[in-house]
Structures are given as C-alpha cells and as structure tokens.
Design a protein around this nucleic acid. Sequence first.
DNA 1: CCGTACTGCATGCACGGTCATTGAACCCTG
DNA 2: CAGGGTTCAATGACCGTGCATGCAGTACGG
Lengths: 141, 141
Amino acid sequence: MASKTAGGQLEDRWRDILSAHARTMCEIDRALHPHGLGASDFEVLDMLATAAPEEGRQCRVQNLVGRVHLSQSALSRLIARLEKDGLVTRSVCAEDRRGVWVSLTSRGRDLHAEVLPLQRAALSRTLGGEPPRPGSGRSPR
Amino acid sequence: MASKTAGGQLEDRWRDILSAHARTMCEIDRALHPHGLGASDFEVLDMLATAAPEEGRQCRVQNLVGRVHLSQSALSRLIARLEKDGLVTRSVCAEDRRGVWVSLTSRGRDLHAEVLPLQRAALSRTLGGEPPRPGSGRSPR
DNA sequence: CCGTACTGCATGCACGGTCATTGAACCCTG
DNA sequence: CAGGGTTCAATGACCGTGCATGCAGTACGG
C-alpha cells in the first residue's frame, strides 16, 4: 500500500511543522515575556538590529512588511507598541514623505542584545535535538 | 570557527518553519474559507473523522485538547461554533459527567469529505515542492 | 498647473486566540 | 458523610491579527 502514502506524507510533514511551530513559538514567548516582548516583537527587533548597521539601523516599514510574517496592519501596530515602549523611533522619510523610517533606540539595541541569547536558547531547546530528518519525529522528554 | 554557525543554523531552520507555517496556514484558510471553515476548524473535524469510527466518531474534549494546537478554552469555543453550524454535537459523558462527548453529525462528515481534498491540495501547493531535506533549501518562485 | 491613479502607512471593525477564573463532578481521606 | 484537592469544560476580560478603508504623499497625463 505504498500508493496510499502520497497524501499521508504531506499530512505528516504538516503536522510536524505545526507542532514544531507551536512548541517553539510558545517557548520563545515564555522566554521573552519577562522582558515585555513577544515572538513577533523580537522578530522585528532582530531585523532592525541586523539590517544596515551603517545607516543607523534604519529600515522603512515597507521594507519590513515583506520580511516578517505579519500583515502590514499588524506590523504598523506592533511598531507603534515598540515605539510606545521606547525601543524604536519612527521618523518620516525625507525623500518619500509617505514612507516611515524605523530605527532602534539604544534601549532597543540593549534589549535585543539582552534577549538574543534567550531566543537562541529557546530555539535549541525545541529544535536543537531534532535532526533535519523528519521521518516520524520522536520528541524527547 | 565552525562554532559560530551553531546558532545561525537554528535561526535558518526556525525561519523556514515560520515561513512554511505562514504560507501553508494562509493557503488552507483561503481554500477552506468558502466552506465556512478555518484551518483549526478543519483540524478538529479531521480528528473526529479519523478517530474511533466504530464508536460513532465520538471523542472527549479532553482527548482532543492534547492533539490539536489550541488551548483548552479555544477548543471549547471552536467546538461551540461547530455545534452552532450543525457540524458536531455535544453530549455529556455518562461515566464521568464532567466530560463531554463530541461527535460528527452527518453534515459534519459530509463537509469533511468535501474539503479534505482541498486541504490536501493546499498542502501540496505549499509543501509539495519542498524536499524533506532542508539543507539550505531553495524555494522556487 | 490640475486631476487622476497609485503607493505607503494608519485606523475601524470583527474575529479568533490565550489567560485567568468559575462551577460542576470526581476522588480521597478522616 | 463532610471537607479539601483535583480534573474537566465553559465563560469573561483582554489582546493581537487580518481585511477593508481612510488619508497623506507621489507620479503621470493632459
């Protein structure tokens, strides 16, 4: 009955992704929540921290939308929250005044540096033990 | 320094999971939404359809909680929605009157059969091309 | 120069999710 | 059998997200 597995393999793969995603997401959230951040917040902070360090870590919102897994509206609100918490600043782009530059504050940079190892640790906790070979993945513990 | 890549590989893997999850989830939602279902709804419907066909496809809520990637409260509301739509029925468990049996109605079974191929199609659209070997996987398009 | 189409971000709204709490039923021990 | 501790499901309060829309700014065509 090898023919029947065609759809089943995809199902299995999807289940693996689903569970890995859920566990990791949850773990990151737990690790970062004490610092007032969620997984999405960190994702944006991380992009800002790693992008264009020579330009003052600035990034247009429009540039971020394509990179994070959020809708444009969600990103807008998220950035608003980060700004309210003093982690980023928004400033109008001079060349195209529709655009908005987002840049890390020093507090944002500090916080990112502070939680980066926590995120890494969460990742290795949930993904570290799993080999890239997903065949009927066994979860330890 | 091979040690530096240790964190980076996990990061990549996490990014892959994130994007596969987002794309697939979105695709499933799009495929199922015309039928009044979301991805989570289907997940529960599917569990009920495949579980214990001899017992009338019944399943305790408590049994489902561990299998789906939802909190207990979310599952409770989800089941309430499905019941309101006439896809499942809830009935108290006689042995343990705290428990609740959930079972598919015939309409629920029909709908599941109807959308199952759509979900499979969505899966193969977003996961089909990708090999199980994620080593610096290149995604077409 | 003005109007129209278009782009980039913000906002109103509805929905679905989690967390914390509640309430009923069960269990166990004195 | 009364009482405290535990488990199962439902509910309330709150939050984040997506979709559709609004509004300012830009580009283009007459």
